[in-house]
């Protein structure tokens, strides 16, 4: 088989999807850990954010890799979905999917699209202003007018004042949780890991899928109510 044949194969694509998912899940965990410090100490959060926002390795190596991982995961998700739809051109008149599979496993594209829409809002809220400040205005100091000290904690709190935005964030994290409830164990199955550790991995996956999004919900609500 040619190399291009392997890259086009069902299994290779699913493995690539799983590897990008592993990467994104690790990123999500570190994002939660860093954001959690904002509930404990504004200074700590500011210091970590400034380090992350100005470190060469993170900005010019890890950030592009992260962006590639996100884009790849979404594009591949749509590519796979398109092929899946073509694979059944005539639908069943009656189909009882709930009899043999979970809602989460059957609706990964739906939860994925909601997460994609949320990422658009999240980039609009944080990432694009960050790019404008650093690359547009050339301000890498972390200090701006109207903020005492480093700006990051103040910007975070400001975003969570609007209850509608907080509601959208919370709803998106619930959808993320549903996505992860299937995605975590599915990624391991895709790379061929189904053995004596599978039951433990599934339980760990459920804990991850519930606790990580819940952590983000708690942070959003914490800043909303503390700011008001």
């Amino acid at each position: 088989m040619s190399k291009s044949g392997i890259l086009k194969s069902t299994i290779a694509r699913k493995v690539a999807m799983a590897l990008s998912a592993f990467f994104l899940m690790v990123f999500l965990l570190q994002h939660l850990i860093i954001n959690s410090t904002s509930m404990v100490s504004a200074d700590t959060f500011n210091d970590i954010s400034h380090f992350m926002g100005t470190n060469f390795l993170i900005q010019y190596i890890l950030q592009p890799v992260l962006l590639f991982g996100v884009v790849f995961h979404f594009i591949m998700g749509f590519v796979l979905e398109l092929k899946n739809r073509k694979s059944r051109s005539v639908k069943y008149a009656k189909n009882n999917g709930a009899a043999n599979s979970s809602w989460m496993s059957r609706n990964m594209i739906l939860t994925g699209v909601v997460i994609l829409a949320f990422l658009g809002l999240h980039f609009y809220d944080f990432w694009i202003p960050e790019l404008i400040t650093k690359f547009g205005q050339g301000n890498w100091s972390g200090v701006v007018e109207g903020h005492e000290g480093l700006r990051y904690f103040g910007e975070l709190q400001h975003k969570f004042v609007d209850p509608v935005r907080v509601g959208i964030y919370c709803l998106s994290f619930i959808l993320l949780s549903l996505h992860l409830l299937h995605g975590f164990s599915s990624a391991f199955q895709s790379v061929g890991a189904n053995n004596k550790y599978t039951r433990g991995l599934k339980n760990f996956g459920i804990a991850y899928a519930v606790l990580v999004p819940l952590g983000f919900v708690v942070i959003a609500l914490f800043h909303h109510f503390n700011h008001c």
């Binding site: 086009k8 069902t10 092929k83 073509k86 599979s101 496993s105 059957r106 299937h182 599915s186």
Partner: peptide
């Protein structure tokens, strides 16, 4: 390699690990 290539050629979809097949 050959069986998977033939499977793809026949137009079957991707496995998304729903587990419905096993059930």
């Amino acid at each position: 390699l050959n069986m998977v290539a033939q499977m793809d050629k026949e137009g079957f979809g991707n496995c998304t690990n729903t587990g419905a097949c096993e059930v």
